[in-house]
């Protein structure tokens, strides 16, 4: 059975190696993405990430959201149960041409990140007057 073999192999690795592997678990934040006539809003849940530990950037045409979870806890604490098994969040979205990446604004509050991506002026809706002949 493949599973049992893998389990045995894993047990042979050192605790240090295991901790290293565990640290690589990437948490994918849950997001809401909304669009209104003037731009897009991305809202991401990143509990445990302070504004200082947030890394938000535009890389080529990608909006990259990264952050490190940091919670004060006693060094001698022993784990009893864990839903969250990673400490690094990452998620990326590809942006499109009509978005003004230089005007992106972001706010981090209570573990919720809000990113506002405005559209370039030329791409905002213009109301077309219908002339009555």
């Amino acid at each position: 059975m493949a599973e049992s073999k893998e389990l045995t192999q894993k047990q042979e690795t050192t605790p240090e190696a295991q901790a290293g592997a565990a640290r690589e678990v990437v948490l994918v934040p849950a997001v809401d993405v909304l669009e209104d006539p003037d731009g897009l809003t991305v809202i991401a849940d990143m509990p445990g990430v302070s504004a200082e530990r947030l890394d938000l950037r535009v890389e080529q045409d990608q909006l990259v959201i990264e952050g490190d979870l940091s919670i004060e806890m006693p060094a001698e604490m022993q784990p009893l149960y864990a839903d969250v098994r990673g400490s690094h969040y990452r998620r990326a979205f590809s942006l499109s041409q009509e978005l003004d990446t230089d005007a992106i604004a972001a706010e981090m509050k209570n573990g919720v990140l809000r990113v506002r991506i405005p559209k370039k002026e030329a791409h905002r809706p213009k109301r077309i007057e219908v002339q009555v002949a």
Binding site: Q11, P15, Q18, A19, A22, R23, V25, G48, L69, S70, I71, M73, A75, M77, Q78, P79, A82, V84, R85, G86, S87
Partner: peptide, 13 residues
């Protein structure tokens, strides 16, 4: 730090 909570994997249970 936070990694302490990730050490769970070491135990078979």
């Amino acid at each position: 730090m936070f990694e302490r909570l990730l050490g769970l994997d070491t135990d078979l249970w």
